[in-house]
Design a protein around this nucleic acid. Structure first.
Lengths: 190, 190
DNA sequence: TTCCTAAATCATAACCGTTAGTGTTACGGT
DNA sequence: ACCGTAACACTAACGGTTATGATTTAGGAA
């Protein structure tokens, strides 16, 4: 079952996308996000502005390239867990992995840049809201859960909160411990 | 001690601000938020575009005029509660009042408009994040609370989540009941 | 009153992210 | 070899926002 998607067209398209993303991130880190315009990125990547926007929906999206990944990982942590594996620890494991990935040394300059730009911070937050909504959908649809739809949607938001709070905490691991204790209690009361 | 802030200048400024807000809301409801430009609002209110932006930080801010109010009410629900009054019920009362105010008949067309515009929905969410942060600050500073700073910040976000979830629920009161049961459990576990 | 300062407003033009309109190239199936 | 179409390019615009600098006007001081 070899992957049939090895056309030259798709390779070129992926290469263009990657070149744009790489160029953008490099320029942003060199000169600062707000000091680099879309026209600068397009020129440096040697593509038209319209091409750039056919690959990325917005300037902020150039920075958050892996987001869809996050969304899938969260819903998979729900749908792909063992038959009688409890929900909250599974979610906790996934969130912890994400936090560790984003607070690692490699991501440090990027998150310094994000914190420095209001537009990027707001985009990140609205991204998280999307993640919460898709997680909520997955929870509501799970037949193994006996909780109400409201409880599922609530827990979805709480879990995303845990990510955000841990991410900005001085000690992310300790914060996650504490927050997930609270989430567990909230989940079990229903 | 008569209030010395009764200058003609301040009255005129307030009048200008109000005229802009009223005109904007009227046009938005008549023609739709996205179909009305800033230049339209300014022309109809008979002010310069720069004057409009000296009163409101953005186009979206024209719609959410009472927000600072919300922020104050939340922090006052914390700082202004009785000496031994428990925290969560006080917060719950305030959130319930806000939800009822925003789901009342008078606010229905406005919230229909907000739901119809992506920009307004995102602005509302980033507004709520600000509210969560100022609530978190109030909680951390409260000497009557023995919980950790992390727990305080977590509960602040949970409370704002409650508002958002109840607001979009089919039965806001029932949703608030359920969500605040969860919040109570999360708070007491710490 | 008269004058001075600072606040409020104005008019214009620009900036920047984003999109529409309109081609042009070149990949891939037939 | 041919044709449909996906990817890309170019130009120009749109709309929110900001910079610039002038002009008016409130309100206190001389």
């Amino acid at each position: 079952m070899t992957v049939p998607t090895t056309g030259r067209r798709e390779r070129k398209k992926a290469a263009t996308r990657q070149k744009i993303a790489d160029t953008a991130l490099r320029l942003f880190l060199e000169r600062g996000y707000d000091a680099v315009g879309i026209r600068d990125v397009a020129a440096e990547a040697d593509v038209a502005v319209t091409t750039l926007f056919s690959h990325f929906a917005s300037k902020e999206a150039l920075v958050f390239e892996q987001d869809e990944n996050f969304e899938q990982r969260l819903t998979q942590a729900v749908t792909g867990r063992g038959p009688h594996e409890p929900l909250i620890p599974a979610l906790r494991r996934e969130i912890q992995a994400m936090v560790r990935h984003c607070t690692g040394d490699g991501a440090a300059p990027i998150y310094r840049m994000i914190d420095a730009s209001r537009a990027l911070r707001e985009y990140e937050e609205s991204m998280r809201l999307r993640h919460a909504e898709s997680l909520a959908t997955a929870l509501v649809a799970d037949p193994d859960l006996s909780q109400s739809a409201t409880a599922c949607r609530t827990i979805a938001r709480f879990v995303i909160d845990a990510y955000a709070l841990a991410h900005e905490a001085a000690d992310p691991d300790a914060a996650l411990d504490e927050i997930f204790q609270m989430i567990e209690a909230a989940w079990e009361v229903t």
